[in-house]
């Protein structure tokens, strides 16, 4: 009797644990079922490398959006990753305890602010600043990169901080005992030792940047063209869906799901590489 009673919760927990597998399977299946027919019709090559997006004329090419996503994300990484690693070094090594206790919850709060609010703030401050000091319409890759850099900071900071804190104390003590300065110890011992955790943080941060919609929808300008400079407006895969999903129907809607497939594949590739890096670390 008792054995059976013990078994029931296990079966129940197992059933509940299958939820994430089925959710992932359903998401994959439905996005692909809805979007794949259009890719088949247009042709995979023409869909991905097509330069024209004109749903009214039945032209579906997402290459400008892929370039948009890649350039905005790269910009965000160039700004956000060094700043984030700097901040995690600050929190683990330099900051006085009191400051650390203010910073951590503040960073957590930064992560909780709705992404639309970041976008709006960017529209009011970053966009006009770029227009005034650097020229162009202001609505640009650069504006999107700045906003996304701020948005990926919490991810980069918290994960790199955890991996720096997880290092054995002897690493730092040994380095200092050899006569290194604090910074030498950080640069040549601690950061290299925490490398895989930091790499995972960067990949996850990039994943967030690629997938973000609402923060960039207001600051990118959203024009469908391959940009020639950082000050050009651009449209990303996510904003393409966000802007047009409201009124799209039939084939156009399928094309947005097909855009979702491209996004999904990019994100899954990033996810899997992040998981691979983390797993290699724990082994």
């Amino acid at each position: 009797m008792r054995k059976l009673k013990g078994d029931l919760p296990e079966r129940l927990f197992f059933a509940l644990a299958l939820s994430s597998i089925s959710a992932l399977a359903l998401i994959t299946a439905f996005i692909f079922i809805k979007g794949a027919p259009l890719i088949a019709k247009v042709g995979l090559f023409d869909f991905i490398f097509g330069m024209d997006w004109a749903p009214g004329q039945g032209k579906y090419g997402v290459f400008p959006m892929i370039i948009g996503s890649v350039s905005v994300t790269a910009g965000a990484a160039v700004i956000g990753v060094p700043a984030g690693i700097c901040c995690s070094v600050f929190l683990t090594e330099f900051a006085p305890v009191k400051m650390r206790n203010i910073f951590r919850p503040a960073i957590q709060l930064l992560a909780g602010i709705p992404s639309v609010v970041y976008g709006f703030w960017g529209l009011l401050f970053v966009v006009p600043a770029i227009r005034a000091y650097l020229g162009g319409p202001g609505l640009s890759i650069l504006a999107g990169s700045v906003i996304l850099a701020i948005m990926i900071l919490p991810t980069v900071i918290s994960i790199s901080e955890v991996s720096l804190l997880a290092l054995p104390r002897q690493y730092k003590e040994g380095a200092l005992a050899l006569g290194m300065t604090h910074w030498q110890a950080i640069r040549s011992v601690q950061l290299p030792a925490a490398k895989s955790g930091i790499v995972a943080a960067v990949i996850l941060g990039i994943g967030r940047a690629v997938g973000e919609t609402m923060a960039v929808i207001m600051v990118l300008g959203n024009s469908v063209a391959v940009p020639s400079s950082l000050l050009d407006p651009v449209r990303t895969l996510t904003t393409n869906i966000g802007i047009e999903m409201g009124y799209a129907s039939e084939e156009h809607r399928q094309a947005l799901f097909a855009t979702g497939i491209v996004l999904f594949v990019i994100i899954m590739a990033l996810n899997i590489s992040a998981q691979y890096v983390v797993r290699r670390k724990t082994k």
């Binding site: 998401i27 997938g211 973000e212 919609t213 869906i241 966000g242 799901f257 979702g260 999904f264 994100i267």
Partner: peptide, 11 residues
């Protein structure tokens, strides 16, 4: 699932 963008959840 943790990495999937919210717009894809929306779709």
């Amino acid at each position: 699932l943790a990495g999937i963008p919210s717009i894809v959840y929306g779709l």
